[in-house]
Structure formats: structure tokens, C-alpha cells
């Protein structure tokens, strides 16, 4: 997807309750139709991006907007860079885990990211 980064992928997968270790093809039926989990993921991507834009983006190092101000979405991360923290999903008692995939860090909750 154009323009998605590690942060927003991690957050969208968490909101859609999809494990980052599943294969992309498993979210599609044999007839090429999206499975329900993929419907959830499409919505989660849009929602995460909309929320991030509303917060003015994420300032992790020194991103600044055109007026020199910070973005604030980093304060709303549910899993990204939150290893060991209690999962933000209501009623979930899991903690955020961290693994390395393709040389990049991945954050997720093993308890509520169970799809598909």
C-alpha cells in the first residue's frame, strides 16, 4: 500500500485483530474475494490514518509540521514501541509483544490479534 509505514501497519493490524505473522493470501478466499478479516483490515487502515492525520502525524524523532509544531499521534499508539505494556483493547488482558520481521520490529498482542 502506498505510504504505509511500520507504525501504521502495526496499529492497523492491532485494530483489525490480525496477527502480523499471517500470510497475506490467507485473507482472501479461493475465489479471490476478501475474507471478513480483510474487510476489517481495510477499515482499520483508513481509520488509523484518519486518526493520525487528525493528530497531525507522529513525531518520533524530529518531524515538524509547517508551523514548527509536533504531531501527537505517538501518544495514541496502542502497540507500536509499547513492548510489555498492557494491551489497549477493551477486555484484553494481553501485553504487547515485540518480534523482528524482515529485519524490522513488529509489535502486537498475542491474545487479541488472533485472526484469521
Amino acid at each position: 500500500m502506498a505510504g504505509l509505514s511500520n507504525i501504521y501497519v502495526a496499529e492497523a493490524l492491532h485494530r483489525a485483530h490480525i496477527l502480523p505473522t499471517v500470510l497475506a493470501g490467507t485473507l482472501v478466499t479461493s475465489k479471490g474475494k476478501p475474507r471478513p478479516a480483510l474487510e476489517d483490515l481495510a477499515g482499520a487502515v483508513r481509520q488509523v490514518l484518519a486518526d493520525a492525520i487528525r493528530a497531525g502525524g507522529s513525531t518520533l524523532r524530529d518531524f515538524r509540521n509547517t508551523e514548527g509544531g509536533n504531531g501527537y499521534f505517538q501518544h495514541n499508539f496502542a502497540v507500536y514501541d509499547r513492548e510489555g505494556v498492557l494491551c489497549a483493547t477493551p477486555l484484553c488482558s494481553g501485553t504487547v509483544e515485540r518480534i523482528v520481521q524482515s529485519g524490522r520490529l513488529t509489535f502486537f498482542c498475542l491474545l487479541c490479534q488472533e485472526k484469521p
Binding site: M1, L4, S5, N6, V9, A10, A12, L13, I18, L19, P20, T21, V22, L23, A24, G25, L27, L41, V45, Q101, S102, T106
Partner: peptide, 10 residues
């Protein structure tokens, strides 16, 4: 696709 969902999204 047999790639990880994360890689496919990136």
C-alpha cells in the same frame, strides 16, 4: 500471496 501480511501492507 505467500508474503507476511505486514510486508504486503508495506
Amino acid at each position: 500471496k505467500k508474503t507476511l501480511i505486514k510486508s504486503a501492507l508495506l
